[in-house]
Design a protein around this nucleic acid. Structure first.
Length: 827
RNA sequence: GCCGGGGUGGCGAAAUCGGCAGACGCAGCGGACUUAAAAUCCGCCGCCCGCGAGGGCGUGUGGGUUCGACCCCCACCCCCGGCACCA
């Protein structure tokens, strides 16, 4: 045994993560190692992971979401960036209020106790969060500015109050935004929602519908872009005016939105939504009873029933007719619940020959069906279903013979020239409803005065503070309504007695701008300074779950664009790059929940294996964007790996000065090749293969060490240093410990990321595959970039290849240098 | 129905540009060390045939392009997510 190799008894110090992790976390905090300075001259990198809701405990999903994000942020720091990686808490919301009702306490108590616990749990992760910038949305110095944003949006005409039919959750006893209704149910509690007519505050997100469809200049995932596009639901078409001539009705037209104006000559009936305002006026006495009964029945149905695509269409005739301006045909007006009051104009022109829903309706009620396109699939007989797009126009007066692709523009032009209607774009997205009849949110900063009406609270009077002693009764009205001290105030204009708005803001409003507050969290003059905004914003890399695609991620884009138009910031998008991790599930493949009993507590994993092992295992599980079940059994493999790292770094190997030995070249190739792979993987969010590459290097070093081979001292040290440096982002504690044991200067986290030398990473000799007719027959070791004839000669000489060539003619040889040689034979 | 993402060993997965399918790890099997266990280390590990050398098959299904396809094209099946009587 060589003197450099320590006897076994002397290297029994085993890898023991807990004391190491505790010690370095304390040291880093004492040294303010992760404090981000605004005056650091290096290029900035703003990395952000979605802040947690203050639900009580940190769960595995938080680790799953934050650890890779932290790993990449640490890597960016080692790459020479001045990295901002902040953390905070999304602290307003219903669970706190519900807990307060149950325990007869104040939601603030529950929330801030949770924050204390979660902050400590977050610290065990060993992430590089800069806690000096912590933001808590429920603290007055934050929500003051949330209220300020509301005033700005109001001033700019992007906030308005309106009476409207809005979604109501009977369980949470508050209204909800459209985005919070999933399949007719409350996004939070799952209760079936209903509609209520209420005076509510809205933000004009629809004004930005088109711009929100533009994702150029940002790198987001196709998934989120697709979800946002679907949600915004842009449809090009036309709004057409049908003539109405009913005595006693004050209008002489009904407007309809259609995506197929080119089928207007095929209109054989007209349908209004049961809620359409004209229904009552136009219905003839003979049909009044039937119509009233139908409208009543429609009102009683839940949205889930009404919008089911499965059910058969129903409707009733109103007795009224409208005139198709194109051909002066008089068509009957029906009402049917398959027409939605909230989309388009709440009216549909019935073209049964070219729309399957209209077709089914016409078949059921014996309405006429007139094809207006000579579709190639149509034999001219009676239709069995609606015809698709294609063919030339027929039965369409002046348009007969027009090709399908020219039809829509031609009809729209004609409509515009004759005053029948205009080409238009319709959107599915509605304005964002932000009022909530709940107490634990930012109060909407307006008052109502008998003399002056609605009056915004002046900026210098912000924040409108939440009372500390509200009584919580889930009544369907904000508890603030019963709090006299809160409710009664004076008018900012004339000093008259006035009432405060008692609704609070949707918590998504708080999270629409939190990324801007992190850059200047203690500013009490403004939400943030313009100078710091210019330095830090927008966020360079955001990461989080896809469940926020049409809520948080859409709202904050709207906010950013509004802020830009108000001159507050100078950019268009909040997050330049967005990466979505998949969802981590319980070991049974189900969502983790207490009731299923499949919850894996991160605290337990950290206690048993250490934070570094848990961090690396989460990243090793599989591709981050994929998600999947958490299999607790595999973690031992990652722990064994870190053990091997520990043993190989602390245990040493037999070394000497051997700069020219072939083994030295091999070892350096391993080192540089691994740096190349890890660098590539970490840039591209491929944390699973990053860990695999580090494992391979470790295995190679272990092989050298176990075999007792003598290696070059400098190359060995280079390998160990590189390994520990690359370990610093994914496993920050063991890396710091091993760095110190290598007698390198504190801290490993302020070192530069190792760079690789492509020449050293390159192979001298490669194994190429030899195929005969595409089937693998031999593998040959050849020098890199070997010429074709050398490869061919070796291949043809091989006795594994020869039998497959016997008696056959070589037609062709394909040679791909450094990869393969394929011999094509015939006969 | 429309949009997006997928389908590879017993399991999680890998394969940078159309070029050796299954890296890395779990589980399993065999071995070294040990009184024993743990820990550590070494070997095997897609399926079928064969004692073996070796051969055949193999990336959801069926076709196609190509010397060569997990990868590209066409048709289809299945899974996950989103939107959906949206006119």
């Amino acid at each position: 045994m060589s003197p450099q190799t320590k006897p076994k008894s002397e290297r029994t110090e085993r890898y023991d993560p807990q004391p190491i992790e505790r010690r370095w976390q304390q040291r880093w905090e004492a040294d303010q190692l992760y404090l981000t300075r605004d005056d650091d001259p290096r290029p900035k990198w703003y990395a952000l992971t979605m802040f947690p809701y203050t639900s009580g405990n940190l769960h595995i999903g938080h680790w799953w979401a934050m650890v890779p994000s932290d790993t990449q942020a640490r890597y960016k720091r080692m790459q020479g960036y001045n990295v901002l990686f902040p953390m905070g808490f999304d602290a307003f919301g219903l669970p706190a209020e519900n807990a307060a009702i149950k325990d007869q306490t104040h939601p603030a108590e529950w929330t801030f106790a949770n924050i204390e616990r979660m902050r400590e749990q977050l610290k065990t992760m060993g992430a590089m969060f800069d806690w000096s910038r912590e933001v808590i949305t429920a603290s007055p110095d934050y929500y003051k500015w949330t209220q300020w944003w509301f005033l700005k949006l109001l001033e700019y005409g992007l906030a308005y109050k309106q009476n409207a039919a809005v979604w109501w959750c009977p369980n949470d006893k508050t209204v909800l935004a459209n985005e919070q209704v999933i399949d007719g149910r409350c996004e939070r509690c799952g209760a079936v929602v209903s509609k209520r007519d209420l005076d509510q505050w809205f933000f004009r997100i629809t004004r930005y519908a088109d711009e929100l469809l533009d994702f150029s200049g940002i790198e987001w995932t196709p998934q989120i872009e697709s979800m946002q596009r679907n949600w915004i639901g842009r449809s090009e078409g036309a709004e057409l005016r049908f003539g109405l001539d009913v005595a006693g009705v004050d209008t002489n037209e009904v407007r309809v939105f259609t995506t197929r104006p080119d089928t207007v000559y095929g209109v054989t009936f007209f349908v209004l939504a049961p809620e359409h305002p004209l229904v009552e006026q136009i219905t003839t006495p003979a049909h009044a009873e039937e119509v009233r009964a139908y409208v009543e029945a429609a009102r009683r149905e839940s949205e889930i029933e009404r919008t089911s695509t499965e059910r058969e269409k129903t409707g009733v005739f109103t007795g009224a007719y409208v005139i198709n301006p194109f051909n002066n045909e008089r068509v009957p007006v029906w009402i049917a619940d398959y027409v939605l009051a909230t989309y388009g104009t709440g009216a549909v022109m019935g073209v049964p020959a070219h729309d399957q829903r209209d077709f089914e309706f016409a078949k059921k009620y014996g309405l006429q069906i007139i094809p207006v396109f000579n579709h190639p699939d149509w034999d001219g007989g009676e239709l069995e279903h609606a015809l698709g797009h294609g063919g030339t126009m027929i039965n369409s007066g002046p348009f007969d013979g027009t090709l399908d692709d020219d039809a829509i523009p031609a009809v729209v032009k004609y409509a515009e020239e004759h005053g029948f209607g205009t080409g238009t774009v319709n959107y599915r997205i509605r304005d964002w409803l932000i009022s909530r009849q709940r107490m634990w949110g930012a109060p909407i900063p307006v008052v109502y005065c008998d003399t002056h009406g609605m009056v915004p609270v002046p900026e210098q009077d912000l924040p409108v503070l939440l009372p500390e002693d509200a009584e919580f009764r889930p009544t369907g009205e904000s508890p603030l309504t019963y709090h006299d001290g809160f409710l009664h105030t004076t008018c900012p204009i004339g000093g008259e007695p006035a009432r405060r708005e008692t609704d609070t803001m949707d918590t998504f409003m708080c999270s629409s701008w939190y990324q801007m507050r992190y850059i200047d969290p203690h500013n009490d003059e403004r939400p943030f300074s313009r100078e710091l905004a210019r330095k830090w914003l927008p966020v360079d890399q955001y990461t989080g779950g896809a469940e926020h695609a049409v809520m948080h991620l859409l709202y904050t884009r709207f906010f950013t664009k509004a802020a830009r138009d108000m001159g507050i910031i100078g950019f268009d998008e909040p997050f330049t790059r967005l990466f979505n991790q998949g969802q981590i599930l319980g070991p049974d493949g189900q969502r983790m929940s207490k009731s299923r009993g499949n919850v894996i507590a991160p605290d337990d994993q950290v206690q048993r294996w250490g934070a570094d092992t848990f961090r690396c295992y989460l990243m090793f599980l599989g591709p981050w964007d994929q998600g999947g079940p958490y299999d607790p059994s595999g973690i031992s493999g990652v722990h064994r790996w870190l053990n091997r790292v520990w043993n190989v770094v602390t245990g040493g190997a037999v070394t000497a000065d051997l700069p020219d030995a072939p083994e030295t070249r091999d070892l350096r190739r391993w080192t540089h090749r691994t740096i190349e792979r890890v660098t590539h993987d970490i840039e591209n969010f491929r944390f699973n293969t990053m860990i695999a590459a580090l494992m391979e290097l470790t295995n190679e070093l272990t092989r050298i060490r176990e075999s007792g081979t003598t290696v070059d001292a400098a190359a060995w040290r280079e390998a160990l240093r590189s390994l520990v440096l690359m370990l610093a982002p994914p496993a920050p504690h063991i890396a710091e410990e091993l760095w110190q044991r290598l007698d390198e200067p504190y801290s490993v986290h302020t070192q530069s990321w190792p760079s690789f030398d492509a020449a050293l990473a390159a192979q001298d000799e490669v194994e190429i595959a030899v195929q005969v007719n595409g089937k693998l027959r031999e593998r040959l070791a050849l020098p890199v970039d070997a010429p074709e004839d050398a490869a061919r000669d070796r291949a043809l000489a091989s006795d594994r290849v020869a039998p497959h060539l016997a008696g056959k003619e070589i037609v062709r040889i394909i040679y791909v240098p450094n990869r393969l040689l394929n011999i094509v034979v015939k006969g």
